[in-house]
Design a protein around this nucleic acid. Structure first.
Lengths: 122, 122
DNA sequence: CACAAGTATACAGTATACTTCATACTTGTG
DNA sequence: CACAAGTATGAAGTATACTGTATACTTGTG
């Protein structure tokens, strides 16, 4: 159980961004009901995991809306088993497509490199 | 040599988006100097290739600014051989990083799937 | 040769993902 | 106990990448 600044440090994500993610429904912390003097929000390690996942998924071009779908499939959210599976299977396909595209780009860039090395303008 | 509508069809990218890319300096067509009655812009196959590359790169999370750097390294643009190589090598590294992230996501999602199948909450 | 369809240009508007700002309350430290 | 640092909230602002609208000119077709 940690406050937002510690969470931000652990996940290496700005506090403002974390607040934005929380408002967007991607993550959620909890207020301790026995603490009445403030409304500070506490986060557990599950949130840290989610943030790491969000970071990776964003880096490979998934939108927050897509990421939210996966997170909701992951951590229940009153979805049927079937609909969760549907979301996850779709993501697996999209991931494979992205891997293929990255490999194609790699090939193209390597070709470009050897062209430059051989002094070809192309 | 084709006009923008044919280019849009071939690359399967909206005309408006192509115009936006041209204004952003990612691609460029040419006006035929022997045609004086209009200022229609013509595009060759190189542009089609570039658009395909842009599409792939965008799909895996590269920004237009990053893509422009690669395209500039690709198609001269008064850059030194060394600086082109620097750009391309950096991109190759980033691509490998993205592939690693995608594989990690794949693993995580598969784990999640088997958890759901076994009736585990997570 | 009327007229639908294509092309160019400029500018405003939209969606996504933050980022900054202002305000106000709370907590830890010397 | 003053006061710097942390936390919460709401609203406005920014950057990126389009998307749509308006206007005007050009071209191809019956």
């Amino acid at each position: 159980m940690k406050l937002i600044s510690q969470l931000a440090r652990e996940a290496n994500i700005p506090i403002g961004t974390i607040r934005f993610y929380e408002k967007s429904g991607l993550i959620s912390g909890m207020t301790k009901k026995d603490v009445t003097s403030n409304n500070y929000v506490y986060y557990d390690d599950e949130v840290t995991e989610k943030l790491r996942f969000i970071k990776m998924a964003k880096a490979v071009g998934f939108t927050l809306a897509e990421i939210k779908q996966v997170i909701d499939a992951w951590y229940q959210k009153e979805l049927t088993k079937a609909s969760k599976m549907e979301v996850l299977n779709l993501k697996l396909e999209q991931i494979d497509t992205k891997i293929r595209e990255l490999k194609a780009m790699k090939k193209q860039i390597k070709l470009c490199k050897s062209n430059i090395e051989n002094g070809l303008s192309r």
